[in-house]
Design a protein around this nucleic acid. Structure first.
Length: 571
RNA sequence: UACCCGGUGGUGUAAUCGGCAGCACAGAAGGUUUUGGUCCUUCUAGUUCAGGUUCGAGUCCUGGCCGGGUAACCA
C-alpha cells in the first residue's frame, strides 16, 4: 500500500539515478560513454608520464589524481611511465623522487615503466615509416630547418633532402643510430606537409643525434626520439585507452593521431584538460628550479615550495591535497585557483585529527601577584574537542606565565576581548585573571603584566556565573620548553604569476623565523613530522631540522582569524 | 593577427534531449562556543555582447568582443 510520505518507487529510482549521474566532469563523461559503448572492450587504462627532470608540484598532483582516480573509478589501471627521451635534461635522482612523491600522495602502480624501454620498438617503427615513404633523413642544419618551417603566417618550404630514396634514408638512419654521424648533422623527420596550417605538422623532427649517455640505456643509443615521436607510441605499447594531458598539447593531437594511424597500431585517445594554477605561487618546473638555483629558497623541499615535498615538509597531509584536486574539478579552460581554497582543505583535513596544544610564539611575562608562592597546579586539558577519543592531558600552571604579546593592548580597541588594564579574561583550562599593573622598560615597552587571579575559577568557570568574553593561551614560565617556529606566508607578492616573468617578486615575509617561543612541556618529546594545532594560532608540525637540542616547528597554516578582520575593518 | 582552444557570481566548478542557473571557496550579517577555531543559519553576487532558430537558449546557429595556446633537434 502506497504511503503518501514516501516517494513512489519510480521516483526513488529516478532520484538515485540522478545522484549517481552527479557532477561528472567532461573527462569522466567521455570515458563513461566509451565504456558504455564498449570502446576498447570497455577497458580503461591511463598513465601519468613525467619527465624525470624535476620534482612534482601541486599542478602535477592534479594530473596524478585525475589519472589514478579515473583508472580506479572505471576499474582500470594507471601506469607510471617516465618520459625519459632527453638524456641531457634528466637524471635518476628525479626518478626516485617522483616515485616517492606519488606514493606519498597515496597512489600505487605496478612496475615503473620507461619510454627508454621502448627505444628498440620505436626504432623499428621509424624504419617502417621510412619504408612507407612517411619519413626521411634531413641533413639541414637546425637553423635551416627552422627557417624552412615558415611562420604562423607563411607556409614552409620543402627540405632539399625531402625526396631521398627509401634505401638512402634507411642507410642514413642506421648511420645516425650507430653514431657515424656527428651531432646536429642530420635528423629524421616525418614527411607530412610543409604548408600545413598547424606548424607541428610541417615535417616534425622524430630523432635527433646526441652522443651522450642516457641514465638508463647508457651509451647504446646515439639518437633520441622527440616527445612527439615517443609519446603516442609509448601510450600505444602500453595499451593506454585514454591519454590525458594538458591543454598545451592540443596542437600536438593531429600529429599524435597521424603517427598512430600510419603505423596501424593500437590508437589511444588523447584528451586535453587545463593544468592547475594557484594564486601567489609558481607552478612552472623551470621557474621553481630557478628559485632553488638562485638560492632564494632552501631547496625543493622548502616549505614555501608548492612541490609535494615542500608541502609535505610544511605539514600538509596527502588527504588535503587529494581533496583539493578533487574539489577544483577539471575543465578545458585555463584557470587560477585561490590559495585560500587550498588552505581551506588543509584546515578541514587537520581540524578533526590533530591534537591541540598551548604555545606562546611571542612571549610576554604575566605575573599573578596573589598566587601562592611555589605552588604548581596541574590543570586538565582536552586534547581535541573534535575527537573525544583523543583524551585529555594535564598542563602545569603557576604564578609566572607567558602569554602572547598580541593578546595584550594597553589601550583596548573596540570589541577587544583580550588582556588590557582592568580587563578580566580566562586563561585556557585555567583561571580568570585581571590585569592590575604594567611594568615597562626604559623605552616604554610593556615587558610584564601584573595580575590577580580568582581561585574560584579553576578550570575556567566562575561559580557566580560571571562571564568573560576572552580566552587566551599561556605557558608556565618554569615549565615551558623553548622552540624555534617558522612562519610561512604566500611565496609571491602578486596573485598572478606574470607570464614570461622569470623573476617574480617574492614575498619578503614568506618566511619569518621566531626563536625563543614557549611551548607547553608536553611538546618536548615531539618528533619530526608530528602535527599539532597551537590553540588560537594555527596548525604546526615538527620540522626535519628539529632535534632534542632544539625543537623546530613549521606553521602549516594559520587558523582563520576573524579578529584580524574586525580590526582591519575598524581602520 | 595563420591555425587551434575557450568565455557561467570575486575565484573555481555543475546544470540529462533545449525546460526552475546549483555547489564549494572567498566576502557580509547573525547564532552556538572555555580556541575571535570548529559548527549552524541567513545574505551578497553570475550565463561576454548583438542578432537568429524555438512555446522555451547557459546549452543550437551567425557575427562581434575578450582570453589562452602554438613557429626546440624540450616535454
Amino acid at each position: 500500500m502506497p504511503d503518501a510520505d514516501f516517494p513512489s518507487s519510480e521516483e526513488t529510482s529516478e532520484e538515485n539515478e540522478g545522484e549517481e549521474a552527479v557532477r561528472r566532469d567532461f573527462l569522466r563523461t567521455i570515458i563513461a560513454a566509451d565504456v558504455a559503448n564498449q570502446k576498447n572492450g570497455g577497458r580503461v587504462q591511463t598513465r601519468f608520464p613525467p619527465e624525470p627532470n624535476g620534482y612534482p608540484h601541486i599542478g602535477h598532483a592534479k594530473a596524478i589524481c585525475i589519472n589514478f582516480e579515473i583508472a580506479r573509478e572505471f576499474g582500470g589501471k594507471c601506469n607510471l611511465r617516465f618520459d625519459d627521451t632527453n638524456p641531457e635534461a634528466e637524471d635518476v635522482e628525479y626518478v626516485d623522487a617522483i616515485e616517492e612523491d606519488i606514493r606519498w600522495l597515496g597512489y600505487d602502480w605496478g612496475d615503473t615503466l620507461f619510454a627508454s624501454d621502448y627505444f628498440g620498438q620505436l626504432y623499428e617503427w621509424a624504419q617502417q615509416l621510412v619504408r612507407q615513404g612517411d619519413a626521411y633523413v634531413d641533413d639541414q642544419s637546425i637553423d635551416e630547418i627552422r627557417a624552412g618551417r615558415g611562420s604562423r603566417t607563411e607556409p614552409g618550404v620543402d627540405s632539399p633532402f625531402r625526396n631521398r630514396s627509401v634505401d638512402e634514408n634507411l642507410g642514413l638512419l642506421e648511420k645516425m643510430r650507430q653514431g657515424d654521424l656527428p651531432e646536429g648533422s642530420a635528423v629524421l623527420r616525418a614527411k607530412i606537409d610543409m604548408k600545413h596550417d598547424n606548424l607541428g605538422m610541417r615535417d616534425p623532427v622524430m630523432y635527433r643525434i646526441r652522443h651522450v649517455a642516457h641514465h638508463r640505456t647508457g651509451d647504446v643509443w646515439k639518437i633520441y626520439a622527440t616527445y612527439d615521436w615517443a609519446h603516442g607510441q609509448s601510450d600505444s605499447i602500453e595499451s593506454i585507452t585514454h591519454s590525458l594531458c594538458s591543454l598545451e598539447f592540443v596542437n600536438h593531437r593531429p600529429l599524435y593521431d597521424w603517427f598512430l594511424d600510419k603505423l596501424g597500431v593500437h590508437h589511444p585517445q588523447q584528451i586535453e584538460f587545463a593544468r592547475l594554477n594557484v594564486t601567489n605561487t609558481v607552478t612552472s618546473k623551470r621557474k621553481l628550479r630557478k628559485l632553488v638555483d638562485d638560492g632564494l629558497l632552501a631547496g625543493w623541499d622548502d616549505p614555501r615550495m608548492p612541490t609535494l615535498r615542500g608541502m609535505r615538509r610544511r605539514g600538509y597531509r596527502p588527504e588535503a591535497i587529494r581533496e583539493f584536486c578533487r574539489i577544483v574539478g577539471v575543465a578545458t579552460v585555463n584557470s587560477e585557483h585561490e590559495m585560500a581554497l587550498l588552505e581551506h582543505t588543509v584546515r578541514e583535513d587537520l581540524n578533526p585529527v590533530v591534537e591541540r596544544r598551548l604555545a606562546v610564539l611571542r612571549p610576554l611575562e604575566l605575573i599573578i601577584t596573589n598566587w601562592p608562592e611555589g605552588q604548581v597546579d596541574q590543570l586538565e586539558a582536552v586534547n581535541n574537542p573534535e575527537d573525544p577519543d583523543a583524551g585529555k592531558r594535564t598542563i602545569p600552571f603557576a604564578g609566572r606565565l607567558f602569554v602572547e604579546q598580541d593578546d595584550f593592548r594597553e589601550e583596548a580597541p573596540k570589541k577587544w576581548f583580550r588582556l588590557a588594564p582592568g580587563r578580566e579574561v580566562r586563561l585556557r583550562w585555567g583561571y580568570f585573571v585581571t590585569v592590575d599593573d604594567l611594568v615597562k622598560d626604559d623605552v616604554g615597552n610593556v615587558v610584564q603584566l601584573r595580575c590577580t587571579y580568582d581561585p574560584e575559577t579553576r578550570g575556567g568557570q566562575s561559580p557566580d556565573g560571571r562571564r568573560v568574553k576572552g580566552t587566551i593561551h599561556w605557558v608556565s614560565t618554569d615549565h615551558a620548553v623553548d622552540a624555534e617556529v617558522r612562519l610561512y606566508d604566500k611565496l609571491l607578492l602578486d596573485a598572478d604569476e606574470q607570464a614570461g616573468d622569470d623573476k617574480p617578486a617574492l614575498n619578503p615575509a614568506s618566511l619569518e623565523v621566531l626563536t625563543g617561543c614557549k611551548l607547553e612541556p608536553d611538546l618536548a618529546t615531539a618528533s619530526a613530522g608530528d602535527r599539532f594545532q597551537f590553540e588560537r594560532s594555527g596548525y604546526y608540525c615538527v620540522d626535519l631540522d628539529s632535534s632534542s637540542d632544539g625543537l623546530v616547528f613549521n606553521r602549516t597554516v594559520s587558523l582563520r582569524d576573524s579578529w584580524a578582520k574586525i580590526e582591519k575593518k575598524g581602520k
